[in-house]
Design a protein around this nucleic acid. Structure first.
Length: 363
DNA sequence: GCAATTTGACCGGC
DNA sequence: GCCGGTCAAATTGC
């Protein structure tokens, strides 16, 4: 993706150059009688500039991973968000426990859990929650007392092969059928997370929709890079059109995605392994970009137009959703220059492993 | 034939 | 005893 390359690189370069220029000015000012206010203003600008640069870097995701839509959206795979805290408060304090116990018993596991909310536009043709970047297999569905819609249960496809015990529950909102509450439990330990495969989608429709893409899922791992690159491209595109899309309708894409998509290890779907990668990434984005938080969940919005764009990209299975998420995240930050990075970036948010030169993110 | 989904039954927590 | 979560056989689709 040359475009992606130039875009990212240019922005990053500009920010770094600006920061340097400002630093020079500051030095000059320090040597004169410039007011402290002026100096402080310069310092602030410098910091802002570097924050933006770091954010861009962060976008590329953790080591060798490109930012997946999911990541950006905020798939809370890991209890650890960029902020170092669980994505959602839903983390019912069960964090305590040491993770998913592959205890095959039916006992309730006290694993960390958090919730995301995703709004899906029916117009877009999607009726279920979006993918979050992992590969899920549905293992049950149940009518929940007081709930209008049944709850679906998913577990990582690689549960048996890689002993990955991450699970998620998808519950359609009673109040707003277009909103899906996705509760994640446990972290992905599989090596398929973040990648690009398509997770099993909760709703049949969705399933069918992505089926074309998914069908190749197992064979699509190789497309991860391609998709990642495509994501950047789409991100840019989304940024350029987002306003117009938002004017009409909004589609929230939380998911999922978690996410993960872009960062994970090599191949396909499963969520990012131990949540860190993707989660950090996701979490960082969701919070940093000011995604709309609804209660304990992360809520993202995306324009239908963007969604449609995804639908047109047949060769980008997972990335479609990921992109959606990515874009949605962008939308929320639509007011910033680059991405409206008007927020402060904590040092903790910076991913030291940023894979600038990673395959999926080659510049 | 394989993989994923569906669905009734089972189990454990509250 | 109720309810949520999971299992596993049956079913479906590719």
């Amino acid at each position: 993706m040359e475009n992606g390359f130039s875009w990212e690189q240019k922005t990053l370069t500009n920010e770094l150059i600006e920061g340097m220029e400002l630093a020079k000015q500051l030095r000059v000012h320090l040597g004169t009688t410039a007011s402290t206010e002026t100096n402080e203003a310069l310092v602030q600008k410098i910091l802002t500039s570097y924050e933006k640069a770091l954010l861009i870097l962060k976008w590329s995701g953790p080591t060798g991973q490109t930012p997946t839509a999911g990541a950006i959206t905020a798939v809370p795979e890991s209890p650890i968000s960029i902020n170092g805290s669980p994505q959602s408060d839903d983390l019912d304090g069960t964090f305590k426990d040491n993770q998913d116990q592959p205890d095959s018993s039916k006992k309730r596991r006290t694993t960390p859990r958090w919730t995301d909310k995703v709004r899906v536009s029916f117009d877009s043709g999607l009726e279920g929650p979006h993918e979050d970047g992992y590969s899920w297999r549905k293992y049950g569905q149940k009518d929940i007392l007081g709930a209008r819609y049944p709850r679906s249960y998913y577990r990582c496809t690689y549960r048996n092969t890689q002993n990955c015990w991450a699970t998620k529950q998808v519950q359609r909102s009673d109040e707003d059928p277009t909103i899906f509450e996705i509760t994640y439990r446990g972290t992905h330990t599989c090596s398929h997370g973040n990648s690009v495969t398509q997770p099993a989608s909760p709703e049949k429709k969705e399933k069918k929709l992505i089926h074309n893409n998914n069908n190749n899922n197992n064979n699509n791992n190789n497309r991860a890079q391609q998709q990642s690159q495509g994501i950047l491209f789409n991100l840019r595109e989304g940024l350029s059109i987002n306003n117009d899309g938002l004017e009409n309708k909004e589609i929230a894409c939380p998911f999922s995605f978690p996410s993960t998509s872009y960062g994970c290890k090599s191949e396909t779907p499963c969520y990012p392994p131990p949540m860190l990668d993707e989660n950090n990434f996701l979490g960082g984005f969701s919070s940093s970009f000011g995604s709309h938080a609804i209660g304990d969940s992360n809520y993202f919005l995306i324009s239908p137009r963007q969604m449609n764009n995804f639908g047109d990209v047949h060769n980008m299975p997972r990335s479609e959703s990921d992109l959606t998420e990515l874009l949605s995240a962008n939308n929320s930050a639509a007011t910033s220059p680059i991405l409206n990075l008007d927020f402060s970036l904590d040092a903790a948010d910076i991913d030291p492993n940023f894979p600038f030169g990673s395959a999926g993110f080659s510049f």
